[in-house]
Design a protein around this nucleic acid. Structure first.
Ligand code: FES
Ligand code: FES
Lengths: 134, 134
DNA sequence: CCTTAATGATACTATTTTAGTATCATTATA
DNA sequence: TATAATGATACTAAAATAGTATCATTAAGG
């Protein structure tokens, strides 16, 4: 039972790399540089970073000397965000009777339990920020 | 991001059904009865119940008047058990650098965080017993 | 015994999600 | 204007999930 897919994992690793570089005042990082350091499949990583750009996690520059840098403060980027982007929001409340419109949804204690569990996990994942990782 | 696959979901629903029947002193339930009540695909449900038997959750009887009943006390069957059977154990510690043997595994705070999160989720899921569901 | 009604074992197919590739278009710099 | 970067997009491959089919075995009951 895994929590993160490979997309999320690669994305986080790339973000850590970019975050570290930004810390050392290296403003812009290219896909090639990340690939050289982390040994990830280039075509895939490009796709992932493009997705992160669309989702306002990264800023991108095109053309010669283009590349990526963090758009937000590393303290404001967290694992829950990245999961949301690649795997959908952290939400476990696909209830056990999901196919039928569960009759006792409102009072069901299980649902309440799963709901609170899900909330807890999400809050904890939100605490794992990029700055805590670099 | 979902927590339960359909296998787990179906299995839990079937177990709830069997548990309720057992409560009413109906000892043995057939796959057909469950299928009639819950409208699940029969061939699939058979496979799932067979798996539950192999895993000592259900007791099965063959031949005429055969069927399934709970092997363990419903208070001792929980959602974590069922997830373990169909999705592998509740364990989120596929670490972020999983491909390499992560150098700082021992001291990594993220790993510790994920580890404790995973433990927490597992403990909570263990509290959701079949008896709490019926 | 023989029929019937149940699960056991197992192999197979189909669908969906995840993982990964390829290509052309666009843009900025030198 | 050549080059080196990302944007957009469409495609393929692999793995996990979901579902089916079939024959073997077993127990009950006439
Ligand atoms: S199982 Fe659906 S609300 Fe409880
Ligand atoms: S990321 Fe692997 S141990 Fe921290």
């Amino acid at each position: 039972m895994k929590l993160l897919t490979r997309d999320t994992d690669y994305a986080v690793r790339a973000l850590i790399f970019i975050g570290k570089a930004n810390k050392r005042k290296i403003g812009i990082i290219t896909v090639d540089e990340i690939v050289r350091s982390l040994n990830l499949p280039k075509a895939l990583l490009r796709k992932l970073l493009q997705t992160l750009s669309k989702n306002k996690i990264l800023k991108s520059g095109r053309g010669k000397h283009g590349g990526f840098s963090l758009l937000k403060d590393p303290g404001k980027i967290n694992v829950s965000d990245i999961i949301s982007i690649f795997q959908g929001p952290v939400d476990f409340t696909n209830c056990l009777l999901r196919n039928e419109p569960c009759p006792n949804r409102k009072v069901c204690r299980v649902r309440k339990k799963i709901l609170s569990l899900s909330g807890y996990v999400d809050r904890e994942l939100k605490k794992i920020t990029l700055s805590s990782l670099t």
